[in-house]
């Protein structure tokens, strides 16, 4: 592995060239996360601006999801700091993250299978009546509106989500993330469980949210998804950041070289590219 590729100056160099002006919505600086003796994330720095999609790519175990779990409050980092709107934020649990306008669509969807769509959409943020009871009708009404926009064919509002198809379940998870006026959205493999038509819907949604000024971190295995949707791409390998590049400046091959070899485009030789296609 080329140590030079990890140098922060180089990363920062690429970064500042790519980033537009103004304080970033999110800055994750020098984040470290360890499980026992294993360093899942080692000194990673990434940022995100309003109305921007940053693709987060890398092989299995590269640390993408773990890094994002630090931002969503699911797993607080062991080191480094997170800035929201330029202010240092303390995110120790999912409630903190949500209070800051950070919503997450987890790869596992994180749905309670025995509960219906509305129950899942409002999980932890239930609407209440004046007497403090759950206002199931108001929640169902809101859920029908949101999901109806995402997936007009969705009808099973009263059934536990375990009886729904993969695409419908995904609709519920996405609806939950977009309903609460997120400013920052983390999408971890949002199209993994979907068929072609539903994938297209998610892509449209991402573009729409981006136009609304929401900042999106998009984790995906699918390099084409990432190329289609992202403004910038951050590549991770073995828990470290290889670099962040502007999509307009790179080819898919160059990103693949970053993912597989950990080399920045400037370091990739003809021989390396030949190696990639071998």
């Amino acid at each position: 592995m080329s140590e030079g590729a990890m140098s922060t100056e180089k990363v920062a160099g690429v970064d500042s060239a790519a980033a537009p002006l103004g304080a970033p919505l999110v800055e994750m600086r020098n984040i470290r996360i360890a499980f026992g003796g294993v360093h899942a994330v080692e000194g990673v720095t990434v940022d995100l601006r309003a109305g921007e999609v940053v693709g987060l790519v890398g092989g299995n175990g590269a640390g993408k999801s773990t890094l994002m779990r630090a931002l969503s409050g699911a797993h607080p980092p062991d080191g480094g700091e997170i800035l929201i709107d330029g202010q240092v934020a303390s995110i120790t649990n999912p409630r903190d993250a949500k209070a800051l306008g950070i919503e997450t669509i987890y790869q596992t969807l994180a749905l309670a299978d025995n509960i219906d769509a509305a129950g899942n959409m409002f999980l932890g943020r239930e609407l209440k009546t004046r007497t403090g009871s759950l206002d199931d009708d108001a929640m169902e009404s809101a859920t029908r509106k949101v999901i109806g926009r995402l997936n007009p064919r969705f009808k099973a509002f009263k059934r536990p989500v375990m009886s729904l198809s993969g695409g419908q379940r995904q609709s519920v998870a996405i609806a939950r993330a977009v309903h609460f006026n997120a400013r920052i959205l983390i999408m971890d493999e949002p199209t993994a469980a979907l068929g072609p038509a539903e994938t297209a819907q998610v892509r449209t949604l991402v573009k729409q949210l981006k136009d609304d000024g929401i900042g999106i971190f998009l984790i995906s295995h699918d390099i084409h998804d990432v190329f289609d949707l992202s403004d910038r791409i951050s590549v991770m390998l073995h828990g470290k950041l290889v670099g962040t590049v502007r999509k307009a400046d790179v080819t898919t091959d160059e990103v693949l070289a970053m993912i597989i070899m950990g080399k920045l485009p400037s370091e990739v030789s003809e021989k390396d590219l030949a190696e990639l296609h071998r």
Partner: peptide, 11 residues
């Protein structure tokens, strides 16, 4: 139904 989902939901 799903302890992880409950935790991630902020419960």
């Amino acid at each position: 139904g799903n302890p992880d989902a409950a935790e991630l939901g902020g419960i």
